[in-house]
Amino acid sequence: MSTEPVDERPPSAGPLSNLIAAAVVVILGGAAIAGSLALGAGSPSEPGPGTWPLIIGAVLVVLGLALAVRARDTGEAERFTRSGLLVAAAVASMIAFVAVIATIGFEIPTLLLAFVWLRFLGHESWRTSIITSVGIVVVFYALFVGALDVTIPHLF
């Protein structure tokens, strides 16, 4: 247990982000309740499609309220910092990946995504980034298309 990496954790989140989380839970529960009622709540002898989601929705609302009451206890929550922008960039690259894969195959998006992550998110050298991303595409092609014959859209 001694070798656990020492993280430079950002400061703990304030009550605000806990309140937002609690609000999201309450809203989710409320949406579930609304959706369930639209589906038909049913009864114990004739449970309808909405019965079970209705129960869960109610439980979520209660739990969300409890979280709100205890918003001061930040627990392990962390504050969002500037480095969160890196995460946003990473997510954007993946969304671009999934948006084009069906039309142009997986090879080019894979190459670009790997390169962006290596060079710009990971600050690897140009050399390493290029070699590694090309290597990933070759290996993926050999593995998924060649060996496993998976039907993923591919260009070549």
Binding site: M94, T110, L113, A114, W117, L118, L121, G122, H123, E124, T128, T132, S133, I136, F140
Partner: peptide, 12 residues
């Protein structure tokens, strides 16, 4: 393998 290299491989 360095995390910066392992991460994109894992993601893909």
């Amino acid at each position: 393998v360095r995390a910066t290299i392992l991460a994109p491989i894992t993601v893909l």
